[in-house]
Design a protein around this nucleic acid. Structure first.
Length: 218
DNA sequence: CGGCGCTAATCC
DNA sequence: GGATTAGCGCCG
């Protein structure tokens, strides 16, 4: 899984570029057409920007004061025009290039932090949406049950009216749900004979067809 | 030329 | 191991 053990041409070039930058610059004309991707190595600059004490030559790490000044400036404005860059650089005793790099890296950090925040916000929204969806689904289930019960009630009452209508001569006038008797009249007297013939035509059970058919009779 | 993405190197 | 500094290539 590790490719760090085999030294290819690029790796040799990396070493060359690290230790002999000028030679490397001559060797590689930068505009190679058949160059997909080059690996590169650090050049170790010998100068120390006047930070804390320490080792001989491989040192960087800006001082706390430099960083806080840069942060202050970054808080003012994320972009860095060259005038401000030069001013900051001379104020802080840094290479303008360092200031530019610092701003670039700072912007990158800021961006990834913002992305992280957006992600967690979106995730929270998504989670609560999932919960709400679940809630709505159970509510739909409950309402469907209620609807089913209500249809059954209506069908039962219609059935009672029908059987009532068979015996009287005004079958389908002034039927209102509010006016329906909680206790169905006449059912005990007539029994259930013939009811299936009324509500089952040619094998279709109209009792389970929903409300549409019932509306025709109301 | 400056910004950005990617990445290596280094620090802690 | 994450944070910081910096090099390199590419794009507008």
């Amino acid at each position: 899984m590790t490719s760090s053990m085999n030294l290819g041409v690029d790796d040799q070039m990396e070493l060359i570029s690290e230790y002999y930058p000028e030679f490397y610059a001559k060797m590689v004309p930068q505009q190679g057409e058949a160059k997909p991707r080059r690996r590169r190595r650090k050049k170790s600059k010998g100068d120390d920007g006047g930070g804390g004490g320490g080792g001989g030559f491989k040192k960087r790490k800006l001082s706390e004061e430099q960083v806080s000044m840069l942060e202050l400036s970054f808080g003012d404005e994320h972009k860095l025009e060259s005038e401000r860059k030069d001013r900051l650089a001379s104020e802080l005793g840094l290479d303008p290039r360092q200031v530019a790099v610092w701003f670039q890296n700072r912007r990158a950090r800021w961006k990834s932090k913002k992305l992280e925040e957006q992600y967690s916000k979106l995730k929270m929204e998504h989670d609560s949406t999932v919960v709400e969806k679940c809630r709505l689904e159970t509510e739909v289930l409950k309402l469907k049950e209620q609807l089913c019960d209500a249809e059954k009630d209506i069908q039962r009452l219609l059935l009672e009216r029908c059987t009532d209508g068979v015996s009287s001569n005004s079958p389908s006038t002034s039927f209102s749900v509010e006016a329906m008797d909680p206790v169905p009249p006449f059912l005990g007297e007539f029994g259930m004979d013939g009811i299936e013939n009324i509500f089952h035509f040619s094998g279709i059970n109209y009792v389970n067809q929903g409300l549409e058919w019932a509306n025709l009779y109301i």
